[in-house]
C-alpha cells in the first residue's frame, strides 16, 4: 500500500469513473449490475476472500427507494478502492466502510455527484483513505481531519436545514417590507 498517496490521483480517478460503475445497480428484478459481485471482486483484489452469502446479503436488497443511491455510491467506491493506492489494504475495513460511512454519505448526496462535483470527489477520496488509516501526502493528521470536516456533506446538510427556516423567514419579511403596497401604508388619525 502506498503510504503517501496523492489525493489528485484519486480525485482524477473518480472523475474518470467508467460507465460500468455508473450503471443501474440491481435491485430485485430491476437494474444491471450485481453490486455484491463487484464488492466480492474488490475483496479478492485486495488480497482477501470472496464475500460469503451472509456478507453479500446487505448488497442484495430489493427496496429501491431505500437503497438504490447507496448501491450506486458503493459501485463508485469500488472503482475508487481498486486503485493501486489501496492495493494490499484491509478488506474488512473497506467492507465496514461500505456498510456504514458510505450509507451516511449516500443519504445526503446523489451518487453521480461523487463523479461530477470536485468537492464530493475529494470527500469520497479522503473518506476512502481514512477508512484504511491513510492520509494524503504532505498533510498532518490535523490538516487531513480539518479538511475532511470542511467537506463533510452530511454535516453541512444538517446546518443548512437548521439555517434555512430562519433565512427564508428573514427573506420573506424583507420582501414584504419592500412591496409597493406596503409602502402605501394605511390611514391613521395622527402622525408621529
Amino acid at each position: 500500500m502506498n503510504n503517501a498517496p496523492l489525493l489528485e490521483t484519486l480525485t482524477r480517478r473518480l472523475a474518470e469513473c467508467p460507465a460500468d460503475f455508473l450503471a443501474e445497480p440491481r435491485l430485485g428484478k430491476q437494474g444491471l449490475v450485481q453490486v455484491d459481485a463487484v464488492v466480492s471482486d474488490l475483496m479478492r483484489a485486495l488480497g482477501g476472500a470472496a464475500l460469503t452469502t451472509e456478507q453479500a446479503a446487505p448488497f442484495r436488497v430489493t427496496n429501491a427507494k431505500q437503497y438504490r443511491n447507496w448501491l450506486s455510491v458503493t459501485l463508485i467506491a469500488c472503482w475508487l478502492f481498486s486503485d493501486a493506492t489501496f492495493s494490499g489494504g484491509d478488506g474488512h475495513q473497506v467492507y465496514q466502510f461500505l456498510l456504514s460511512q458510505l450509507r451516511e454519505l449516500a443519504a445526503v448526496t446523489p451518487a453521480p455527484k461523487f463523479v461530477t462535483d470536485p468537492d464530493r470527489r475529494e470527500e469520497l477520496a479522503r473518506l476512502g483513505l481514512k477508512a484504511l488509516d491513510l492520509r494524503p501526502a504532505g498533510e498532518t493528521p490535523e490538516q487531513a481531519q480539518d479538511r475532511l470536516a470542511t467537506l463533510n456533506s452530511a454535516e453541512r446538510q444538517r446546518v443548512i436545514a437548521a439555517a434555512r427556516a430562519a433565512e427564508e423567514r428573514a427573506r420573506q419579511i424583507r420582501e414584504a417590507l419592500a412591496k409597493k403596497e406596503a409602502e402605501e401604508a394605511a390611514d391613521k388619525w395622527t402622525r408621529e
Partner: peptide
C-alpha cells in the same frame, strides 16, 4: 404587512412594519 417610514438620513429611513389593524386602533 404595511410600512411606515420614519425620518432617516440615508436613502433608507427607518422602516417600521405595521398593519392596518394597528393604524385603525389609533382611533
Amino acid at each position: 404587512l404595511i410600512v411606515y417610514a420614519t425620518s432617516g438620513t440615508t436613502g433608507h429611513p427607518l422602516v417600521i412594519p405595521s398593519h392596518p389593524v394597528v393604524s385603525g386602533c389609533y382611533t
